[in-house]
Design a protein around this nucleic acid. Structure first.
Lengths: 253, 253
DNA sequence: AAGTGGTCTAGACCACGAA
DNA sequence: TCGTGGTCTAGACCACTTA
């Protein structure tokens, strides 16, 4: 198997980094059963020569796969292929609107504003974008059973969603929209959940008193290890809860 | 999902791994303000010569710190010290006290009350116990760095933890205690996270104003499919947030 | 142009697990 | 003992930011 050594410039998403190439090929082989579930990956030295790259590169690819639940890497034994189809059911990524619908709510979007701007460095940090990058900001008010339940603010690198302004009001599940229109399939995400008191603006948009406790969910969504979307969801705490299932104890240090 | 991120600094049998040493020293400097929040870490080449290790070692330490929310690492600019608040990765079942300790907090328990009672039907439902069952209730105030951070209320079927009253004040990680003293290893759990305003009692115990937003975590822990523990954690939202990592999209319907 | 982090190489030795 | 992953070195060049 040959790996393109260097392809310079191009689109920032077509860059062929060696470890990403290895990662993508290995992942495909796992998903297609070339490396069967329960089986063992070739050893790292073997992959080195197979892909003609250094150990560092192999290890970075394997680390990504292990982090996403494809592999269990054990010193002295090898890297075992996990049943990714079941592990993914534990904490899978759900869009907020999809979750509400699954709970039997009648969901709609009251208003949607799409604008292009240069956001705060905090948001650029989350998206790992350089200074002064243009970002698309989508603001929505989510209505469940006729009453506002949450505010959603999404931030996406403007380069990867050209022309998205023309779709204002024409979608409500952003994930599904990104998948079908831009071929941007989210693979992993990290949420941070906290709580705080409602501001005046929020109390107006959500129809709750000022100071009312709100649930805040900040999510960074990734594809191939790169952040795609930063989403802040501001939720009426009286009408929504997060539910999380877990298995096992943390790795011992 | 990160692998092996929760390195504990003050481990008694601390292996002299170079990257862990660098990690611990840098983390300590950040927590003590030697590298102030908003400031910038010395460059990686500078750290190389300062610690007399290779770039790989420095990068691994920095990667750990970034993964734990201490640093924002930006190409071409540097590594910036973030305003870290404690976060919990929920992919694994973690005890609240264990998580706080892993983040370098000085954790103690201000008061612990263990009592035996017949709880509300809501709690009996969660534990799948018949009406009028006796349940052990453990109430604790968790102190982090000298200030109350959370109230913990655990409910356990009295039959499976005989004599637990005699251990009042003698443990702080309940999971570890159940594992070692009753051979009750938790295998899975489901959390529900919500938010609400602090009551008068809660405002007294947590030293926050009445009406202040609190994070509420309700967890049912299972072993062999049977509920073992129902835990309600009532948390100062200014000092703690939950972190969840997810993989993949839900199965299509 | 200079300095930063990002990637990568070609080695080396160590710690662990199985034969 | 041998093969596995875990750690580490001393370089090198690339990509991004700032000046």
């Amino acid at each position: 198997m040959e790996i393109g050594v260097h392809s310079i410039g191009k689109d920032s998403y077509m860059r062929s980094l060696a470890y990403l190439n290895v990662y993508n090929i290995l992942r495909k082989r796992i998903e297609e059963g070339f490396y069967p579930v329960g089986g063992i990956l070739p050893s790292e030295p073997s992959l080195e020569s197979q892909f003609n790259v250094s150990r560092t590169t192999i290890r970075k690819a394997v680390e990504l796969l292990a982090g996403e639940g494809y592999l269990s890497v054990r010193q002295g034994k090898g890297s075992f292929v996990l049943d990714f189809r079941t592990t993914q059911r534990l904490n899978y990524i759900t869009s907020f609107t999809e979750t509400l619908r699954a709970r039997g709510y009648e969901v709609s979007v009251k208003s949607m504003v799409i604008e292009c701007l240069v956001p705060s460095t905090n948001i650029l940090d989350k998206l790992m974008l350089p200074n002064l990058s243009q970002v698309v900001h989508i603001h929505r008010v989510i209505i469940a059973n006729g009453k506002p339940i949450a505010l959603m603010d999404n931030y996406i690198d403007a380069k990867i969603v050209p022309g998205i302004e023309t779709f204002a009001g024409k979608f409500d599940s952003l994930y599904r929209f990104l998948e079908s229109n831009y071929n941007l399939e989210i693979q992993s995400a990290t949420d941070i959940i906290t709580a705080r008191a409602a501001t005046i603006n929020e109390s107006n948009e959500l129809a709750v008193p000022v100071g009312f406790p709100l649930l805040i969910n900040m999510r960074v969504s990734y594809r191939n290890g790169s952040p795609i979307d930063y989403a802040v969801t501001t939720i009426d705490s009286q009408r929504y809860e997060f539910s999380i299932s877990m298995i096992g104890r943390p790795p011992k240090i």
